[in-house]
Nucleic acid binder design. Structure first.
Lengths: 346, 346
DNA sequence: CTGAAAGCGCTTACAG
DNA sequence: CTGAAAGCGCTTACAG
């Protein structure tokens, strides 16, 4: 059965399409009786306006696009959940695309979203993304854009971030407060802003505490996977017998490292203290429970949509955009993988 | 800047819109020169056909809807990834909605997708879903529907499932083979077909092995969460001092139970053997490593889209639908949370 | 209070 | 090889 159209309703009732349309939308200049008739019939026939016809007229698709590097990922799936929840409240639908950390894919997907005439785009950049022309395409076409988590500082748009540098500083400071002298860092790939910032925060904390910075203690990971965590944990011990602390980007990697250390009989935190990043719930389940930085994914998703929504509204009202960068709070969650600073001080 | 239209291209080149349209789509009856000119200009202006106008004409949105109970969930996010990947290959976009296990939300979302004129719908039912009228709306409007994982047997459409009953039977048999006599079952809510089937498989295995079935050993969980796993692990031990095995729906719950047992000093598998379900990667990380049933999420996603694609094609060619139920293979992954049958037999 | 008409941006059967 | 015309299903300014 073909979907019911306004025309059918109008013909059945012997009125014009115009009146039928207005009746459904409660225009004040339609009689109560007509409204009732139209609405009843629409209900009976299960009429739903053809969203494409509406969009074509109104230029509003009530749909936004979302590009994330990876869907199967605790942090991003939390963000997705936040975005969908908030979008639904405002009557927006979300098309989700996954860049697999690839610049090429990301570019294609922006194109796709552009041709789908989405009302706005939310993006967390791929690790492989080094230039931002594809984002410019959005700007040029006046499609509102909000970046979150993995952002590009140069791109002029609203952003939702955490203070990666500060969070990493806090994490490293915590290790130092626990008496660590030789602190390694498992960092992410070279391009993403957040792995740069976390590295910078780590380094700064060392400098501020007069702990010598040793580049050979910094390991660059590609996948940020559990297996990489295991691999580099073992490698680190081979390279440096004297490490006593590690600040690790992403709990998943940290849990890999803990697993390997457990297998090797290394005691955590007695031999090595570990701080992770993200506060994935598994980090409170692993043995020993992982000290980490809490990174609010769900909230980030909600906030990102809210910012996007504001810009969509601004655009509709022909107001100039008002780019904002919202910084969400992070928190150090102290657990068993570090000696508790508070205890060792008393 | 407004998006470029066909009209602008045609006017710039001094040709008709018709010809411009045909040139871009490589119709054979357009001269090479015209084609070249049009294509070049389109490229320069970064022209992208307005998808809504196209859809309005062609009745094809090249978009499908996906409804899952929960996004932040390892199994479902794997399915999502499979679906997006496969959809992209065929040029389809995916709108993702989350029902939060609520029938009401699910219903609303079907409505939304219907008004968005998606070409097809993929769904895994909410736990709260007890009737299927909302799915009928899809059928009536001739929108292809494929269900996966949490399906309704009565609904007449294509499905992708695993043999939950057989898998649960295998899991329970494995516990019995390991000498377990008092086997508990942590099952899911009452409505979903898969928690019913798993329960049935569990029961059947007991009966076939002359192990008495004791209803008080079956616990019904609501959330299937980590915390519920902990809670019921403790409760189980209070209720039944003599349990020696548990078959637990979902690794997440099983990991909760293991965590609680570890805290309580219960030895796994010496005191109690445990088999989980899903083969979430954390199950090979937890201590002891969890014996479980492997449930192929990514593959399920790919398969579900493939089935949907076939039906979309059938519909376009005005062929009758050909509903199929694809059963994906599961596998028992034996790890440390059960005594290894092979070893104990030799 | 009602409706004819224009138009959103495309595609395609048809005529020349 | 090219193009005028109809139409997809709506919305809305305008006339009556």
């Amino acid at each position: 059965m073909k979907p019911v159209t306004l025309k059918q309703i109008a013909e059945t009732l012997g009125i014009s399409i115009t009146t039928a349309s207005k009746a459904l939308k409660d225009y004040p200049d339609v009689s109560k009786k007509t409204k009732r008739l139209v609405k009843e019939l629409a209900e009976t026939l299960n009429y739903k306006p053809n969203a494409f016809a509406v969009t074509l007229r109104t230029k509003e698709s009530k749909t936004i696009g979302l590009i994330v590097p990876e869907v199967v990922h605790h942090f991003f799936s939390s963000v997705i959940k936040g975005i969908i929840a908030q979008a639904e409240k405002k009557g927006y639908l979300v098309i989700i695309l996954q860049s697999n950390e690839s610049y090429e894919l990301e570019k294609k997907q922006i194109d796709l979203l552009l041709s789908k005439r989405v009302d706005g785009v939310l993006i967390s950049l791929a690790n492989g993304t080094g230039d931002f022309k594809h984002l410019n395409d959005l700007m040029v076409q006046d499609v509102p854009l909000v970046m979150f988590d993995k952002i590009a500082k140069i791109v002029n748009c609203s952003k939702v971030i955490i203070n990666d540098r500060k969070a990493a500083y806090t994490a490293t400071q915590h290790l130092i407060d626990n008496g660590c002298k030789r602190i390694a860092h498992f960092r992410g790939p070279l391009l993403p802003q957040n792995s740069i910032d976390r590295f910078l925060g780590y380094k700064q904390a060392l400098v501020d505490n007069n702990v010598p910075y040793d580049p050979s203690l910094v390991y660059i990971l590609d996948d940020m996977s559990f297996d990489e965590g295991k691999y580099f944990a073992e490698k680190l011990l081979k390279d440096h017998k004297d490490v006593d602390g590690i600040f690790i980007n992403t709990d998943l990697v940290a849990i890999g490292a803990i697993t390997k250390f457990n297998e090797m009989g290394i005691k955590i935190p007695d031999d090595i203290s570990i701080v992770g990043f993200s506060n994935w719930f598994m980090s409170s389940v692993i043995n020993p429970r992982l000290t980490t930085i809490d990174q609010p994914g769900y909230k980030m998703g909600k906030t990102a949509f809210k910012l996007l929504y504001k810009e969509i509204k601004k655009k509709k009202e022909n107001l100039p955009p008002n780019f904002k960068t919202v910084e969400l709070q992070t928190e150090l969650i102290i657990r068993e993988s570090t000696k508790q600073a508070s205890l060792s001080k008393t």
